[in-house]
């Protein structure tokens, strides 16, 4: 489909969508209304019986925990997909690390200073998911980004040595499996998959919410490992992998295009 025909199609379809969406919006409850039947029940459940101060966490990891299991495995699947897509092609080889270039001493210092702070914040956010805004997903991302401050500080070798892909892959699988295992424990002890089988404690205690903190921890490990894996996959493309001059025979998908493409990539690399 050419760009022009796509645009024509858009010009026809967009007004139809806009009109239907406008009509649909008129049927929604007015913005800011008091009509939130599900929300009211979720709040009542979370603050009462389940003693989880952060109601969003209670919805995600208790009342609708099975949806989060699905979400967790979407993340898992996409990480596997990205790793498979970014694996070295037959005509690529791992070169030694290219030099990091000049890193300003202030950048380096900022990286080193912020690393412990962001790791601490990440752990805090994961551990307090049942009390304050945050949880496994958010804290995991903070941990993973904090980790990459090492890259900003010019220590990519240290980054790779400290967390090899194998360790991260195991951590990610363990995190995802722990989520499912807690669900199965609920099935055995409480009689339903992912049922909140632990004592829920008192509202606003650190150890409250039953399985919510446990599931947050599992998700935190999985997400942190997943994001580091994703980012390192992309970083490797830039920092480690280099295309050899001659693509191996038989490795190309079609006959002409890849050759043209690979020579362009090689040119590009030389220019850099």
């Amino acid at each position: 489909m050419t760009r022009r025909s796509r645009l024509v199609l858009f010009v026809i379809v967009a007004p139809v969508f806009a009109a239907l969406f406008f009509l649909a919006a008129q049927g929604l409850p007015s913005f800011g209304s008091e009509f939130h039947p599900y929300g009211d029940r979720a709040v009542e459940m979370a603050t009462g019986q389940r003693a989880t101060a952060n109601v969003v966490s209670s919805v995600n990891f208790d009342q609708r925990a099975i949806d989060t299991l699905g979400e967790e495995f979407i993340l898992f699947g996409s990480v596997i997909g990205t790793i498979v897509l970014l694996r070295p092609a037959p005509e690529e080889r791992e070169t030694g690390l290219r030099s990091a270039g000049r890193v300003l001493p202030t950048t380096r210092l900022a990286g080193y200073l912020l690393l412990p702070v962001s790791v601490l914040v990440g752990l805090y956010v994961i551990a307090h998911g049942q009390l304050s805004p945050g949880g496994g997903f958010q804290g995991g991302v903070v941990l993973a980004t904090g980790w990459h401050l090492l890259y900003v500080a010019g220590r990519y070798t240290a980054l790779r040595r400290a967390a090899s892909p194998t360790v991260l892959e195991i951590a990610e699988s363990v995190g995802a499996a722990a989520y499912a295992a807690i669900g199965l424990a609920g099935l055995v002890i409480g009689g339903a998959f992912l049922v909140n089988f632990l004592p829920t404690g008192r509202l606003n205690d650190l150890l409250s919410g039953g399985t919510v903190p446990l599931l947050n921890g599992a998700v935190g490990v999985a997400v942190a490992a997943a994001i580091v894996l994703l980012l390192s996959g992309f970083l490797e493309q830039e920092v480690v992998l280099r295309q050899t001059e001659e693509p191996l025979a038989g490795s190309s998908i079609s006959t002409e295009e890849p050759l043209a493409g690979s020579s362009m990539v090689a040119d590009d690399a030389e220019q850099r």
Partner: peptide
């Protein structure tokens, strides 16, 4: 926000389900 860490239970909060 639907977080009862520093507001008493019963405070009017926005819908937590859509936030999740």
């Amino acid at each position: 926000a639907p977080v009862f860490a520093d507001v008493p239970v019963g405070t009017r909060v926005v819908d937590p389900v859509v936030q999740a």
